[in-house]
Amino acid sequence: MNSIWLSLLWKEWCEHRWKMAALTGILLATPALSLFVVARASRTDLIESALSISTTVLYPYALLAGMFIGMSVAAGENSRRTSRFLSAMPEAAWKAGAAKILVAMLVVSLPVVILWSLTWLFVSNQASDSFEQAIVQNSQEFKLPWSISNVFFARCVGGALGVVSVLLWCVVCGMNRADEVRAGALAFLGGSVAWLVFAGLVAIGRMSLR
């Protein structure tokens, strides 16, 4: 990797690192608080609660974090009025764009990886034989953490892909808008329309099959 890439990635990382810290804090605090409440009520449900809470928080996280970072990637340079400075640099614009998207993907997906790594650690410490059997009955490879049939790995990858997907939608729909709010609004509109069209096509497909 040459130093132009390093320079661009460093800039993006500096711009997003505190956002990532905030997202990680929010994503970890929500299940931790929920588990604390569950633990005070009853200890027996802790493992199932950890899994279900960590899964549930992924949905709002994917939507909100994907849009939050996506808005910033799509319109941050314009809203801070640095786009002319960036575009006047002697390098192809696609490199700056690629560095932005790569770092943004890392920033939104890393909290998901941290959440599921901690969930895995928590469950591993709490797990009884019966629970482990219940998990592995559908998978012989539960103990391989990188296997897609591993529930932790699958949800971690699924969550990361989900948030990256929202991020990319947001970047594409909100690209080159004057500010982040417009970019976010357009991304929400664009994403909603795309999903409505998709749902409509699925419905039509099902009706035609009948």
């Binding site: 800039k11 500096c14 711009e15 801070r80 009025r81 640095t82 002319r84 400075f85 006047a88």
Partner: peptide, 9 residues
């Protein structure tokens, strides 16, 4: 550039 805005951070 005219009124050049650089990265404030």
């Amino acid at each position: 550039a005219e009124d050049q805005t650089m990265y404030g951070w």
